[in-house]
Each structure stands twice: as C-alpha cells, then as structure tokens.
Design a protein around this nucleic acid. Structure first.
Lengths: 245, 245
DNA sequence: CAGTATTTGTCCGTATGTATC
DNA sequence: GGATACATACGGACAAATACT
C-alpha cells in the first residue's frame, strides 16, 4: 500500500528543476542561468544549497560558471565527456579482468572497422591514412604510440557512432594502463612497431576497398596477436570465438 | 609551447584526491570517508568546499552521505546508474540519435549472442530457456516485457563479460525510454508478442546448437525488424551493414 | 582605457534534525 | 532513553575575478 521513501535533499530538487528546464528547451545551450543570488530567492533556499546544485550540474557537464560573470552560469551543449567519465570509472573500479576488457575491445573494434569500411568519407579516410604516415615516420616510441592512438580514434570517428567512439577510447585507455608495465620493459620494441605497421597497412587497404568483413577480421586478429601474450593461457579461449569469419 | 590553463577550483582538487584514493584501492567500497570536519582539516579548506566536493562525488555515484552517521560518507561500489544518466541525457538532448543507439545495440547483442553460443553453461542455458517459457505463458504485457528483459539479461550474463552485461542493460533501457511513447500506443501488441516469441525461440535453438554466427545474425535481424520502423527512413541505412553474414 | 558594480569562490558561525553508541 | 557526533541548511562576510559603462 505504501512505498518506501527516501529523504530528498533541497539541492536535489534544485537540480531537478534546472535539469527539467534545460531538457524542456527553456534554457537552450548558450543561454545563461540567473545568478546565484537570484536563484536563492527563486528557489527559496540559501546560497550554499544553490551552489551545491550548481556544482552537481557542472560535474555533469550541463553548465559552466565563471567567477565574476554577471550573466550567470552558462548552459553548455550536451557532450559525451560525462559519458566518458562514468564509463571510465566503471571500467576502472569494477575490477574487470584483462581478458574481459580485451574481449570487449575486440568486438568493439571489429564492429568499428566493419562500419567504418562501409560508411567512411574521403576526408575521414585521409585522416586515417595521415595517422599511418605519422606512425611510419615516427622516430621515438612515444610519437609512434600517439600516432597509433590517432589512427584508432580516426577509425572510431569514421563510424559516426558516439557510443563506439567513447567506448573505444575508454577501453583502450584502461587496457593500456593495465599492461603499461609489460610494455615499459619490452625489449623487442622495434619488432612490435614493425608488426603494428604491417597490421595497420593491411587494415587500411581493406578500409579503402570498403571490404568491411575483411577489415573487421584483420582488426580482431591484430588485437589478439598483440595482446594475447599478456593473458594467462586459460583466458585466451574467451577471445578465440571472436576470431572466426 | 604553452598550453591554455583553466583555474582549478579548490573543491575540484578535493574531488581529485578522493577519486584517486577510491581508484587506488585505499578506499574500497563499503569503507567510509572521514567526516566533513575531518576532511576540512585534512584538506585545509572550509566546510562549504568539502561539501561541494562531496556533492559532486555523490552525483557521480561514488559515495553516499547520510545525516547523523558518525562513520562518515559511505564509499559505494561502482554502479551503472551514472552511465545510464549520462547516456539518457545525451539521447534526450538529441545529440545522440536513436539510430546510433540501435546501431550500438545491434553490434553489442550480436557479439553477446556469438559469445554466449560458444561459452554458455548448462545452467545458463536453462535460465535463458526459463525466461522464454515465462514469456510464452505471460498473460499481460508487463509480465511479458519483464520476461523479455530477463531473457536478454540471461544471454548477456552467459558471456561472462562485465562490460557487455552493463552496456547491454543500459543501452536497452535508454532505447526503451526513448520509444516507450510509441509502444504505449501500439495497437498490434498481440502481433508484436508473437513475433518476439518466434524470434526468441529461433535464437534459443541456435544457442543450444552452439551455432554462434547464426545466433548473432538472428539477434541482429530481430532487433532491426523490431525497431527500424521507429527510425527515419534515411537512418536505416546505418543499420543494414550490421545485418550481413 | 580605467573605474565601478556585480558575481563567484571561499570562509566562518549557528541552528536543527538525525543516526549511532 | 540520553549523550554525542554528524549532516543539513541557513546567514553573513571578504577577496578575487569579470563585465559593463
């Protein structure tokens, strides 16, 4: 008959009302909220309460307030940074095994290359190709690694899918964090780089030919070849189903 | 040579330090932060600053503070609610289209069925089968819908991959939120249910036969058949590349 | 270009309801 | 049940930062 209730803080209701106004279109991106003093009179709460609500909205990427701006906090356009943050926290704190992350990365990048092969525009392909050129001419390892990141980012962007872009960057970052110790002590860095270059050249060819299934398969195979060695023997079986076709 | 700087507020550095402690494992889920008064002495800031930092952490789902608890704010385990919130926000401000979400869901579930077909155990298969039985005998639509959710959840769990489980649940929830208006006015609910049952029965057969590529293809085709009609004509082209093979 | 007014950032003090021991 | 410590919320205050005249 009755349902349990939880106390709703004052600042939460302030957040709700401002959120509703933003979602409802009364506060479009680029517009400004009233000043903190105006808000405390409109909501009938103290300034501390208003400020706590504004901090929450700011951490969610909805507004941005600058000291001294008489126009009030600025309403920002929606951006995937909050999505990126929450996903990173989830990936880092859920204590996921490296095998799970690699599995997810293989299916993500596999699908990304499949889509990119069929949907890419000329400029996006040029961007990917430019990243590969930078990798080829890179002298030190950090420059090579940065260009490698740019290559994968460009492919993800070519899919035009926000979720793929965000998930790819997050998962790649967490994976690299987990194995950076191994990479730092890698002695055969030169062999690694040449293998990467070969893989990337092949997959770029497949993209250019708009051969989605080939690009996807090459990408998954490359990931397996590059990272499976960091995995316990038993965990590699969870990746092999993704290598087929 | 120089990069632009932005003033770092005091509360942000408090957030950063607490976040680092949680990520680093010094503050595992279930443990407690020092009280607000302790925190203000440790960080050397005022009460308001500490509180604004705690509000940000609370809105991100990392901590929970209750009035009067002498143990201090509770550190929560990672949960996908923040992910759900940020995704919903992006979708509602139409900076992420329904097409993108469906595209992502198709590749996610497609891979999930592929993995589940090859990795599932007997008990997991029984769980999936039980959900389908519940769907078959369901009388009202809500019971049918709940069993449908249970079916998909059981498949996701069979992959043993946390990222797949979390992302599938969140994306499915956001998609359903977006089209619930259309569903509420659906007149051909009975036809919908029979079609769902047919699809689920077929895919369960593929799972049982450990035919991963068939299960994957059936799942993607079912998603397209069920949801493509809610999409603008032009957006459907972004889904068709995922139907092949 | 400088001055002024306003706003935010931060601090302190206080009262009240609440959870734990 | 009482004592204690806590979070919540309020109000006032000052300095730094910004926009506008």
């Amino acid at each position: 008959m009755f349902s349990p209730v939880s106390p709703v803080r004052a600042y939460e209701r302030v957040v709700e009302q401002i959120e509703a106004a933003v979602f409802g279109g009364q506060l479009p991106p680029g517009s400004h909220l009233p000043s903190e003093r105006d808000l405390m009179t409109q909501f009938g709460v103290s300034r501390s309460t208003v400020r706590e609500a504004l901090r929450v909205l700011q951490s969610n990427g909805m507004i941005q307030s600058r000291a001294g701006d008489p126009r009030g906090p600025l309403v920002l356009a929606a951006s995937p940074v909050a999505l990126h943050k929450s996903m990173t926290r989830l990936a880092r704190t859920s204590s996921m095994s490296l095998g799970e992350l690699l599995q997810f990365r293989m299916l993500l990048e596999g699908s990304a290359y499949l889509l990119a092969a069929q949907l890419h525009t000329a400029s996006q392909l040029a961007e990917i190709s430019a990243a590969l050129d930078t990798m080829t001419t890179a002298t030190d390892y950090t420059a090579f690694s940065d260009a490698d990141v740019a290559f994968h980012d460009a492919v993800a962007r070519a899919t035009q899918n926000t979720m793929i872009i965000v998930c790819s960057t997050v998962v790649r970052g967490v994976v690299l964090d987990l194995i950076e110790d191994h990479l730092a002590h890698a002695t055969d860095r030169q062999a690694l780089m040449t293998r990467y270059l070969k893989h990337h050249t092949e997959v770029l060819e497949a993209l250019r030919a708009r051969n989605g299934s080939l690009a996807s398969q090459l990408a998954r195979r490359a990931l397996y070849d590059s990272y499976a060695s960091y995995l316990p023997e038993a965990d590699r079986a969870m990746l092999t189903p993704l290598l087929e076709n």
